[in-house]
Amino acid sequence: MRSPRSLRVLLFLAAGVAAATAAFGQREATESGVKAAFLYKFANYIEWPANAFTSPTAPLVIGVLGADEIAGELDRIVPGRNVNGHPVNVKRLKSGDGAAGVHILFVGKEQGGGAATVRAAREQGALTVTESERGLETTGSAINFVTAGERVAFEVSLDSAEKSGHRISSRMLAVAKRVVPRS
């Protein structure tokens, strides 16, 4: 309600975000809010590599590059929550920062053609998430937000996820708008 744009998005996402807002019991959802909630929720459906955490209570780090608004939403969501016993930390990254220690790296669209960043992060073992309307193939990320009609949806590239050493739950794949199989 802070801006006309927010209002418009709210209208757009009316039903789509109902679940997200329900899950967090917060104010009206914005697109950033939905995406932030999704980022956090993805963690529940990911099978992490064996060496991803140093201990069962080690924090799960969500790195955000070039999307301050989403980072801000995440900051509000994560305190006090955990994923399978891992508390969730949000880490704001700047261009050029490495993805070391980051479990999920979100590359915002302000970052432009982030294919190189994505590739670098993937090699460092981070699950990469982008928000490119041009699709997964251009970013090379494992998950890519798209808008489907009036709601936020996502695409999944099993190929990319595998390259970073992740397996994605079939239950999550069931709700993905598009799944790119392994090549």
């Binding site: 039903a15 975000v17 679940a19 529940n44 459906y45 996502f154 069931a174 709700v175």
Partner: peptide
């Protein structure tokens, strides 16, 4: 509950209905 958790979580009514 298990199969529809993701659909509910990600607000996917179609999938939930299919489930």
């Amino acid at each position: 509950a298990r199969t529809s958790a993701a659909a509910l979580s990600f607000g996917d009514r179609e999938t939930a209905t299919r489930d």
